[in-house]
């Protein structure tokens, strides 16, 4: 009684170990299952929606759609965005608010997408770039509007 239990215990144990070894042995001999991606040589395929950093889209005329309404600045939970506005004089002689600089602190950003969601004109989007490492963190503070750019006609 005791002996048969003992023997079945030993055999059951050995069998369970062999099952595991068969599984690892299978992967040892089947190299096509290898999932390693060799990163710098093999760039990952990122999804279209992947949130890497906030960018402002500029068209070919170096125009963007940012009105400087600061909706994104208000929506941002971390104070990542700072908008400096100025007043442009329209041809009619009226003063019109516009952005001077759109400062974006990438080092504070958590890629939560709330600013993009809040933007009424679709001026900012999330880009796919994810390789953000730099040697000096001050390089992570970016100005998103390109020099000399101005607001696209008709965007209010």
């Amino acid at each position: 009684m005791f002996l048969s239990k003992y023997i079945s215990e030993v055999f059951g144990g050995v069998k369970s170990l062999l099952t595991g070894m068969r599984r690892t042995g299978y992967y040892f001999t089947h190299h096509k299952n290898i999932i390693t991606q060799q990163y710098p040589n093999q760039k990952p395929v990122l999804a279209e929606r992947f949130r890497g950093e906030v960018v402002m889209t500029h068209d070919e005329n170096n125009e963007h759609a940012c009105t400087g309404c600061t909706a994104c600045e208000l929506a941002c939970p971390n104070g990542t965005i700072k908008i400096v506005t100025k007043f442009d004089i329209t041809p009619e002689g009226k003063k019109k608010k516009a952005i001077d600089t759109f400062v974006y602190h990438l080092e504070l950003c958590t890629m939560c997408n709330l600013c993009v969601d809040a933007c009424p004109t679709g001026a900012i989007t999330m880009s796919n770039s994810f390789e953000h490492s730099v040697f000096d963190r001050s390089e992570l503070t970016k100005v998103l509007n390109k020099p000399g750019s101005k607001i696209r006609e008709g965007v209010e």
Binding site: Y27, F28, H31, N33, I34, I35, Q38
Partner: peptide, 13 residues
């Protein structure tokens, strides 16, 4: 190498 192949990796290369 043995560990790498069993773990679906390439190992040092």
């Amino acid at each position: 190498k043995v560990s790498a192949y069993m773990q679906l990796r390439l190992g040092p290369n």
